[in-house]
Amino acid sequence: MFKILNPILHNQLRLAIVSLLISVEEAEFKYLKEKTAASSGNLSVQISKLKDIGYIAVEKTFRDNFPLTTCRITDTGKQAFLEYVEALETYINKADK
């Protein structure tokens, strides 16, 4: 039986953000923008969605009088990612049989 894929993580950009944060745990907005090649506006919207559901934490500070946004994966986000990968494996394993 196929497991339901988490609709929040099934979005390509949100999945990319969470995947990056899983590997580094914390990253600045600029880093995420460079790695995902997303526009600032789209990245900002997707970060907000992930923050609102509790998958990431966002800290807004200043560095040298410039805004600095830092994102960090939460335990909830880590768990959701692991469950998403597990659900995706049910699709891959069915294709192998």
Rank of each mutant, 00 (worst) to 15 (best):
E28Q: 11
L15M: 12
E28S: 14
S23N: 14
V24H: 11
E34S: 06
L15T: 05
L50R: 04
S48V: 12
I53G: 03
Y31H: 12
V45I: 13
K33D: 00
S40F: 04
S23W: 03
E34I: 12
K35S: 05
T36V: 04
K33H: 03
G41F: 09
E26Q: 15
G41A: 08
S48L: 08
V45T: 13
K35L: 06
L13Y: 11
A27S: 11
G54A: 08
Y31Q: 02
R14N: 13
V18N: 06
S23G: 11
A27T: 09
N42I: 15
K30A: 07
E34G: 06
I22W: 00
K30Y: 01
K33N: 02
K51N: 15
Q46F: 03
F29T: 07
V24S: 08
K33F: 03
I53A: 05
L15D: 02
V45W: 00
K30V: 14
S39H: 10
G41P: 11
S39C: 07
L43T: 03
E28W: 05
A16W: 01
K51E: 15
I17N: 00
E28Y: 02
E25M: 02
E25W: 00
E25D: 10
D52H: 10
L15C: 03
L13E: 14
V24W: 01
R14L: 06
E25Y: 00
S39T: 15
S39I: 14
L15V: 05
G54S: 13
Y31K: 14
D52F: 03
Y31G: 04
I17F: 03
L50D: 14
I22D: 06
S40H: 06
G54F: 08
L21W: 04
E28H: 06
Y31D: 14
G41S: 14
Y31R: 09
R14S: 13
N42A: 14
I47N: 07
K30P: 01
E25K: 09
N42H: 13
L43R: 02
S40R: 00
K51M: 10
L43C: 09
V24F: 07
V45S: 01
E25V: 15
I47L: 15
G41D: 11
R14V: 15
S48W: 02
S19C: 08
L20P: 01
L21G: 06
Y31E: 14
E25Q: 11
N42L: 15
S39F: 09
A27V: 09
L20H: 01
I17E: 00
L21N: 09
T36N: 00
L20T: 05
S39L: 06
I22F: 11
S40I: 00
I53K: 09
A38F: 01
T36L: 03
L20K: 01
Q46C: 12
N42F: 12
V18P: 08
K35G: 04
S23I: 07
K30D: 05
E26K: 08
I53Y: 10
D52L: 13
L50S: 11
I47S: 06
A16N: 09
E25G: 10
